[in-house]
Design a binder for these strands. Structure first.
Lengths: 165, 165
DNA sequence: CGACAATTGTTATGACATATAACAATCTGC
DNA sequence: GCAGATTGTTATATGTCATAACAATTGTCG
């Protein structure tokens, strides 16, 4: 417990030049930097999409429905890692804004098939362009090579706990 | 309304093999994969630290204080990107658990210097070992090379909006 | 010195995201 | 036809992030 012995002096030293900061073991903790990077990227997302009132999750939902029209609500949610209980309100809002429609599925009256409305399809196409601008800022920040090489490891990390299900 | 014209057929097709799923443009959206990866990594963090009742933010706070004893409360929070309003309750809890102490700073009765208690120092050392196990699982998932190469770009991304302050 | 501005910690509050439990309607398998 | 699974839904709790306002204290400057 060397800390206790020299505690007082070390405190005073640190207070004196509080400007200096040592991340310590933290700068080799992947989760920490993933979190910091994700927050910063989302902040840029919000800034870029400001005039559209679209959050990241909403953009991802619209994109998945666009690429997979008619998927059951639960499947879309699961694909995005969103619990179905939380997914309901999200679809409610997109439907309320006239972007998404819950269509009946012949043969299963429990489920809903999600499809984009005409307006939803138009907006989603526009959002892709906006998203490209956002992505461009990320590339500018880290370089094309690093950008390209990020996807594979992030993908692998995202599948971490997949065995346990 | 081109969507309406072919809408019905496409819906039925998609419903038929709902198992298939196309991420579409989403798999080239860095923010999406950052988020997914971060959530999965945090889930593993929670699993690994289960018996300690320690969240990622708490571990980061303890680590920063350990590496920089005596830093003012606001400085520690800012270093971790935590707004000082939100930081208060976090320190309250760590203090309540006897891990952190708010020490007076001579010459400034507004500020508090944060230091680990003996118990806090002991626990933090133990947490580093646990964190190493956690980190080992991440390395196992993506390989040492990819792991090592992740830090630089994540660091750069985390500094994205830094010019605007 | 004394008014005024800036800093620091704090409280209160709101918007979101995430998680679980319980329920009704519906479907499936036997 | 009945028991159990599936699907969407509601309700609820917790955690994270953000902003505004305030009191105490400190710094600035005429």
């Amino acid at each position: 417990m060397g800390v206790t012995a020299s505690g007082r002096t070390r405190v005073l030293e640190a207070v004196r030049d509080a400007a200096r900061f040592d991340a310590g073991p933290l700068d080799r903790r992947l989760g920490y930097w993933l979190r910091r990077a994700q927050l910063a990227v989302f902040r840029d997302f919000f800034a870029t999409f400001e005039s559209y009132d679209i959050r990241p999750a909403q953009y991802s939902i619209l994109t998945v429905i666009e690429s997979n029209p008619g998927l059951k609500q639960g499947v879309v949610g699961e694909a995005l890692g969103i619990k179905r209980a939380n997914f309901v309100a999200m679809i409610d809002e997109l439907q309320g804004r006239g972007l998404v429609r819950r269509a009946p599925i012949p043969g299963d009256r429990r489920s809903h098939a999600l499809v984009l409305t005409a307006e939803g399809a138009r907006l989603t196409a526009e959002l892709h362009a906006v998203s490209d601008r956002h992505e461009g800022k990320l590339i500018a920040a880290i370089g094309e090579t690093a950008y390209r090489d990020l996807f594979a490891p992030l993908n692998a990390l995202a599948r971490l706990g997949e065995g346990e299900r």
